[in-house]
């Protein structure tokens, strides 16, 4: 219903707000493409494959891409078992009031700002990691990954729990009637039904982990280097976000350095958008679960 012919102020206002809301992402996308274009012209594909980054000389994004990948991987590896285990207990075992309390706590945990996680990381976690693994320094991919895993835990847990609970009760009843015990019921009846939702939860968690800046920036060590050997996660490194956070203020707006940072931003943008898009498609974009970690109580 395109309200042509009745362009009252109210409707005009609704339309203009709507256009702002839906075009913002596209404008940011175009902005990143335009601002990063010179670096792709200048460095070609070497921008993606180069492993050296020296402002004014050469810009290679690979160490940052690697860092974002490995830190996200660590974060998900730690967050997923915790999230799944507690989602199973919350959805299959606990009573309704307890469940609501746990979900409320998860929501509170999700509200703690990144900079406070960074403060926790820099004061407590780096020291703990350094002493536990007898390292020369506590700043590392591993430290950043652990910090991120705590940060994405509420997202993954809440959405996984939603997925488990969306499996119809009859599935469980039938499995139990067939003589399966409770863990077998969960494995053979509940989890297969919820697997898509859980996958969506993980993807949205990944999207969040990749985009987090401050806490990672404070504990990663900011060294643009792929470790030797590449799986050595106990060394310092750099992620795309920590690079942008570190060098953004210095490079803003001018020269290849800025174009290169915009290029990093574009890579991050595309990765996060792609993953979140798939995640939202699975979890169901109409439910709003990707945004506010809550359930809609009633449908019209």
């Amino acid at each position: 219903m395109w309200p042509l012919g009745r362009w009252r102020p109210g409707v005009a206002f609704f339309i203009s707000s709507f256009l702002i809301s839906i075009s913002a992402t596209g404008i940011i996308f175009i902005f990143l493409i335009v601002e990063s274009f010179p670096i792709f012209q200048h460095e070609g594909l070497g921008f993606l494959s180069g492993s050296e980054w020296y402002p004014g000389e050469v810009y290679g994004a690979l160490p940052m891409i690697y860092g974002t990948g490995i830190v996200t991987f660590i974060a998900v590896s730690f967050a997923l078992p915790l999230a799944l285990g507690s989602a199973v207990i919350t959805s299959e075992v606990l009573s309704r009031p307890t469940r609501l309390v746990i979900k409320m706590m998860m929501e509170l945990l999700a509200g703690i700002p990144g900079v406070v996680y960074g403060l926790l990381g820099i004061t407590l976690l780096t020291t703990a990691v350094k002493n536990t693994f007898n390292l020369i320094d506590g700043n590392s991919f591993f430290t950043a990954g652990i910090l991120l895993s705590i940060m994405i835990l509420p997202t993954v847990m809440t959405l996984s729990e939603d997925a488990l609970r969306s499996v119809p009760k009859e599935y469980r009843d039938q499995a139990l009637a067939l003589g399966l015990n409770r863990s077998e019921t969960i494995f053979h009846a509940v989890l297969p039904g919820a697997i898509k939702g859980i996958a969506g939860a993980v993807l949205l968690g990944i999207g969040r982990a990749m985009g987090e800046t401050i806490s990672v920036m404070l504990v990663i060590g900011s060294l643009d280097r792929i470790p030797q050997p590449f799986y050595n996660i106990f060394t310092t490194g750099q992620t795309i976000t920590s690079k942008l956070g570190r060098e953004g203020a210095e490079a803003l707006g001018v020269g290849y350095h800025w174009n290169a940072l915009a290029g990093l931003g574009l890579i991050l943008f595309l990765a996060v958008m792609g993953i979140t898009f798939i995640g939202n498609s699975i979890v169901g974009p109409l439910s709003g679960r990707g945004i506010n970690t809550k359930r809609k109580q009633k449908k019209r």
Binding site: T25, G207, G248, F269, V272, M273
Partner: peptide, 8 residues
């Protein structure tokens, strides 16, 4: 829009 990393 909600998913855009805040640093961007």
């Amino acid at each position: 829009l909600n998913a855009v990393p805040t640093i961007i």
